[in-house]
Design a protein around this nucleic acid. Sequence first.
DNA 1: TGAGATATGTCAATAGAGCTGACATATTTT
DNA 2: AAAATATGTCAGCTCTATTGACATATCTCA
Lengths: 192, 192
Amino acid sequence: MADALPQKSAPHGKRADRTPPHEPMDQAPPEPMFDLIELFFFAYRDFVGDADRLLTRYNFGRAHHRVLYFVDRRPGLSVAELLDLLKITKQSLSRVLKDLLDQNYIEQRPGLLDRRQRLMFPTEKGEALALELAELQSRRFARALEILPEGARAQGAAFLAAMCDPATSDPATSGPGKGDSVKGDPATGGAT
Amino acid sequence: MADALPQKSAPHGKRADRTPPHEPMDQAPPEPMFDLIELFFFAYRDFVGDADRLLTRYNFGRAHHRVLYFVDRRPGLSVAELLDLLKITKQSLSRVLKDLLDQNYIEQRPGLLDRRQRLMFPTEKGEALALELAELQSRRFARALEILPEGARAQGAAFLAAMCDPATSDPATSGPGKGDSVKGDPATGGAT
DNA sequence: TGAGATATGTCAATAGAGCTGACATATTTT
DNA sequence: AAAATATGTCAGCTCTATTGACATATCTCA
């Protein structure tokens, strides 16, 4: 039973014909990079798995983690800004945010300039949990970097940045658009 | 409103004290690598977003994608092996697999050696969709690699591989364990 | 051969995270 | 004062995944 699973051979026979030598690269479908697709899937799954296990002890889920993470990283964030970062609706956020507010991981204060805003800040308790989670995930990065050659950290960061949509890639700006609730693609559901 | 969001300064003041110069690296928490954490989140979100949009047209979700992907990549996979790869329960798989079987993207055949097994194979239709999805996601990799220096592909793959759990990292083997349904961590829910 | 393990399927109930639509309230802008 | 904006909330639906409990076919081993 532990036999190696059969795997398809690398070059998709049928596809080779469809990729003439000197076609405009923008049009022709690239050769599928199954290795990267698969590695990305496994790496991310294991990466978030670390945090999931820790969050379970607090009766929190991944959604709580993301909210706490960004509030900790960008203290004074407004609700609209957070919605835009997470690309979810305010209704989705509210349930999760309520938990974090009720249990004193986050607190809200009215904006100084615009008192309609509810700026969010991590409490000490919130900062502590955010740090614990970040350290846990950083351990995985640290372990990975130990077995990788010198410039691996910069290379990895560059690779990930290049994989982002242009709009989202700028980590400092990646923010405020205009409209109300940010509506992602429909039917994407609460998928993983 | 489009002001740059405030960001915390890099070195967590409080933490510096807790990281003495020459402590056993295995114990001391690493400095949080917020840049990598964040980039990993955004990169993966945008990466799966591509496929999500396409899947919507077929009334499929991410779960269907994953099943189709692995059946296409490892034709002749048994149910138990697939469960182990995906780290979900058979009940979760069944709903999604049923859709793919009913709509002829995948077909099952009894195992030759063990007729209890229902080995899964992609149909032509299934192969076509799997390829379409792989090409779509590969386009993003291709775009990223265009703006990255020479060895970026190998470096990226190495980085991702190093981020995986040892067990899952071996892409060829990553398979058959023993027990029945593979139970992940409880309360991880169907989170993203 | 017969008991027990194994591979798979299925019914039922539940949770987590997301969505849309429809309102309500406070505050700022025009 | 009217309109726009920022936020909150109620209600209902989807998708993915979980647990528990059984059912069936098939293999294995004593």
